Simulated scan of single mutants.
Amino acid sequence: MSEKNETLVLFLASIIPIGLVLGGLWFVFGKGGSISQPTTQQLNSSNKCDVTNLPEGIFNYGGSTTWATIRRDIDPVLQQKCPKFVLRYLDPPSGKPGSGTGIKMLIANQLAFSQSSRSFKPEENQQAQQKGFSLKEIPVAIDGIAIAVNHNLNIPGLTVAQIKDIYTGKITNWQQVGGVNLPITPLTRPKEAGGTVEFFLENVLEKESFGKNVQYIGTTTEALRKVDANPGSIYYASAPEVVPQCTVKSLPIGRTNTKFIPPYKEPQVSRSECPAKLNQLNAEMFRSGEYPITRNLFVIVKQNNQIDQQAGEAYANWLLTPQGQQLLEKTGFVRIK
């Protein structure tokens, strides 16, 4: 071999491996000389739904109006996290939404699961059993009933017994409970409105009927407006619906008149500071049970060993995860664990 040919062979032998290395770097880093970014599809595939036992499909649900903020603020988080688990809220075909109508729709197989602010009743479970399944309730949060009054009313609080006497018509003037000489106007939504009214009748009125002086209001929003406009009015509702309001004030409640527990964290925010600053729930007193009127929020599930049961249980179990409990707390309810 000539000296020129030998030099050419040596040159080619050295240049070919370099070309292969540079080609590999071009493939890895891309034509632009920088590391290629993952595509949207790649990012989405890495953000997988990690909710245990959550089925795929469209699931109808509904029930308690107390759950409205949960449906608005929390359920979309689950929808974004697990887009193949689709929740579709249904109003009742007749009557107003509420815990009772939600359970009724569940028994009629119109809902996969329902949201309730009270336990199901024995007769409701019997109706479900006639359809071939039983009901199961899963508590996911703690709620309280707050008493709303006009800002100008000046009393330290009410006992549960006094609240009962006001709503059954035995106490009719604020002077009878340490206030000024002013007639009391008790407001309530009708019994058919849902779990809050049923809970109040069962646990505060001890199954007695509302007095003749009670006025019936369609919604909490309407009731709070009336309390603001009428110095003698009183109303009860789920604590997250009442405590942060600027137009009314929440009354401390006691089992006896020697110890009243406020539903808000002290010191109470004045009306002049609101809405820049809002009253917060007295979560510690709700959780400990020292606040006298508390209850659980439940997911009501069909026990039928079918996909509806799986959907309801998985939804409830997600609300019981650290993320779910944190979201419930931010929404104004008290975490149960």
Rank of each mutant, 00 (worst) to 15 (best):
E273T: 06
T188N: 05
P240T: 09
P267C: 12
I70H: 04
A161Y: 08
E290A: 13
V299F: 04
D50L: 03
D75Q: 09
T52G: 05
T219V: 09
Q79R: 11
T66A: 10
S46L: 15
A141P: 00
V227N: 05
G194T: 03
N305V: 02
T220M: 06
W174C: 01
I253S: 02
G211P: 04
A161S: 15
A276Q: 15
N304S: 11
L78S: 04
V204W: 04
S114R: 01
T185G: 02
N230A: 07
E222H: 13
Q326S: 15
T247I: 14
D165W: 07
M105P: 00
Q79K: 11
A237K: 05
N296W: 00
E202K: 12
K131R: 13
A161L: 15
P267I: 13
L278Q: 14
T65L: 11
N282P: 08
N213G: 11
S45P: 07
S64P: 06
P55N: 13
F200I: 10
G169I: 14
P139I: 03
A239M: 07
P83A: 07
T247C: 11
V77W: 03
S134N: 14
G102T: 06
K212M: 07
P252W: 03
P262K: 00
N257L: 06
K249E: 08
K170G: 09
F200N: 02
T40I: 15
E198R: 13
S94R: 11
I18N: 08
P93Q: 11
S14R: 15
T172R: 10
N203V: 04
T188Q: 03
D75T: 08
I217N: 06
V86S: 01
V9R: 14
S64Q: 03
P231D: 03
N181E: 12
T219W: 08
I307C: 01
N230F: 06
P263I: 01
N305H: 13
E202S: 14
T172K: 15
I58Q: 14
P55A: 12
W318E: 01
T220I: 09
V180S: 11
T185R: 12
K84Q: 06
N154W: 06
K302R: 15
N305R: 12
F260A: 09
G289N: 10
F113Q: 03
N47A: 15
A68Y: 02
Q323W: 02
M1Y: 14
R271V: 05
V227Y: 00
P231A: 08
I70R: 00
C246G: 15
G169D: 13
A141D: 01
P231R: 09
G232I: 00
Y291V: 07
K31M: 12
Q323H: 09
T196G: 02
Q310M: 01
K81Q: 07
L43K: 09
T258P: 06
N296V: 03
I184V: 04
Q310E: 08
L182D: 05
Y235H: 05
Q310S: 04
